[in-house]
Design a protein around this nucleic acid. Structure first.
Lengths: 133, 133
DNA sequence: GCTATTTAGGTACTTAAATTCCTAAATAAG
DNA sequence: CTTATTTAGGAATTTAAGTACCTAAATAGC
């Protein structure tokens, strides 16, 4: 079984978790509760949100009554931004598979695959957290 | 750095290798030559073609002058078929991330991501080996 | 037939990514 | 100020993909 769009479990957790937090604004939400709500691994979710915090997408507060909350308006947070923080920067190059060298003089998959890559990129950049909250 | 479309190195080898073979029909091509042509790992390529052979997409002949050749017309081989042999079957379900359970009652990414998944699926099923040979 | 070549297929190794575990640091509440 | 709670961050583990290695089986050419 395979997934056509390349989204890691971590990025999926980030996406779903942030939507949930956006929905529940302005309350702070801690990882334990969020993991229960998302039916997800608490430790993994914690790591993911650590990254989101480092990237200043969310702010965190430790201790009792601590947790995470959005660090900017939901309408200013795109899926592209979230995706790139977790899974790494997207580079839309000549090769849709991200290779530097290819035997074939011009990329044989160029037309089809680059169109799709472009489409995904644009779609991600248009999807805002606010649409779901 | 991240790749938006989920295609493994192995599937990429299969795709490129088969295009090369299709281009050079009706000659048989052996793994050593193919690896040189594709600038790829010979052992990995061998394993990939073993799979393609088992799936009857190519037929093989051992011994000197041996190698691989297409087992059916290039216009009857789609990228979807190749992709699924190597990376596994694609299931276009409700969840674009292939999960069984989701907290959100209806998939919040449904509209956008399923449209893209569908698009990739259809594009792959329309891309035939013969287009490149 | 003998030999060299080439695929088949199992096993083992390597590497990178994903995930979990554990301890430290912060902080709210009593 | 003490305790319980919660995030931070490093280390360790797990998993999956890719790669290498080795022996067996097939076969073409001499």
């Amino acid at each position: 079984m395979s997934n056509l769009i390349n989204i890691s479990e971590a990025a999926s957790l980030a996406l779903h978790g942030l939507v949930f937090i956006a929905k529940n604004q302005p309350s702070r939400i801690n990882v334990k509760v969020l993991a229960e709500e998302l039916n997800a691994s608490q430790t993994h979710l914690a790591k993911v949100f650590q990254k989101l915090g480092k990237a200043n997408l969310v702010r965190s507060l430790r201790g009792p009554a601590g947790g995470f909350e959005l660090n900017k308006p939901a309408e200013d947070i795109t899926f592209l931004e979230i995706y790139e923080i977790i899974d790494g920067e997207i580079i839309l190059g000549d090769c849709p598979l991200g290779k530097n060298h290819c035997v074939f003089k011009s990329c044989i998959f160029d037309n089809e695959l680059n169109r799709i890559s472009q489409d995904i990129y644009e779609t991600f950049s248009k999807m805002k957290l606010s649409e779901f909250s």
